Amino acid sequence: MATFDLSRSVESGMQTYPGDPPVRVEPHADFDADGYRVTALAMGTHTGTHVDAPSHTEEDGATLGVFPLDTFRFDAQLADVRLGARAPISVAALPDPTDADLLVLHTGWDDHWGTDRSRDHPFLTREAAAWCVDHGYHVATDALSVDPTPGPNAGADEPTGFEAHHALLGAGRLVYENLRGLDRLPSRFRLHAYPLAVDADGSPVRAVAITGE
């Protein structure tokens, strides 16, 4: 059995989705002055590698506290969707359905983390998101979002808003974003990705893939 950490480190000044709160990781108590150390954290609920609850985009959607803990352990199917910049991920690009309960989109765009290029990731079409719902999948991606991220290279014909989020979260599915290192994984693996114990619209997670027996 092997384990792989698919999570981004939480650090001051790290990249966030446009408009999200900045991340600060700062000393609060110093060992020399106070005899102990405490670090102050300030960040949004969608910092780094995180999970979206339905309430993220749905007015009456469930918060994370509604979901039993077992929900955050998955039998995952990897989908190789390493397409061009700002390319739509259609139903045709997705693998044949399996008995997995999480479809993990390997866009390869984690290589661009922390750069302006990271905004130009492939995105899930509304039809592909609905297909995921129809086949019982939650969805994860190694990109900033399952929808197009606003940026200077956005095309005039791209969907705006959060069509894929609405299709998934509106159906009670979970969405994970900003995974990393998916090229190390086989097509099927287990994923444990637990949120903080916060009843909110989302939370950073420690996403750990488990392969083998």
Rank of each mutant, 00 (worst) to 15 (best):
P95S: 11
G19V: 07
H138I: 09
P204T: 10
T149I: 13
L191E: 05
D75R: 15
A92V: 15
F31M: 11
E59M: 02
E163H: 08
E11M: 12
A92K: 15
R82K: 14
T125Q: 01
A143G: 14
G151K: 01
D96S: 12
D101S: 11
E213C: 07
L94Q: 09
P195G: 07
A62T: 00
D111G: 11
P95L: 12
P54Q: 06
P68L: 11
L124K: 01
S12W: 07
C132M: 12
A92Y: 13
E163W: 05
A167K: 01
V139K: 02
V91Y: 08
L94M: 13
P195M: 12
S145D: 14
Y176M: 06
E59T: 10
H28S: 07
E26A: 14
G212Q: 09
A29W: 14
G61Y: 00
H28W: 15
D199M: 12
R188F: 14
A87I: 04
T115W: 11
L105P: 11
G48Q: 04
S7C: 09
H106L: 09
T39I: 10
F189P: 02
D199C: 13
A100T: 11
W113A: 15
T57A: 04
T160F: 04
D70L: 08
I89C: 02
V146H: 08
E158K: 01
M1S: 04
F123P: 03
R37E: 15
R119P: 03
S12D: 06
A129V: 06
V81A: 11
A156C: 04
F162G: 01
D134A: 12
A128L: 07
L144D: 11
T63Y: 12
S90T: 15
D183L: 10
F31K: 13
L103W: 13
D32I: 11
L69Q: 07
M14Y: 10
Y36A: 14
S90C: 12
V51H: 00
P195C: 13
E127Q: 15
E26Y: 02
G48C: 07
D52W: 05
G35E: 11
E127S: 15
S118Y: 09
D120M: 07
E213K: 07
D99Y: 06
P97Q: 10
D101A: 03
G170L: 00
G48W: 04
A154F: 03
G35Q: 06
A76L: 10
A167Q: 07
P148F: 06
D99V: 15
F189W: 09
G155K: 01
A33S: 15
I89A: 12
G108F: 10
D99G: 13
T3L: 09
V81N: 06
A128G: 08
E26F: 01
D142M: 06
V51L: 08
P148S: 07
V146M: 10
R119T: 08
A79L: 09
D147P: 02
G114T: 04
L83A: 13
A53S: 08
S145E: 04
D101R: 08
G19H: 02
D70F: 00
D201A: 07
P27G: 02
P159G: 00
P152A: 05
H135A: 10
N153V: 01
D120V: 05
D30L: 13
F189Q: 09
A193H: 07
R119A: 11
P150E: 05
D60G: 00
E26V: 15
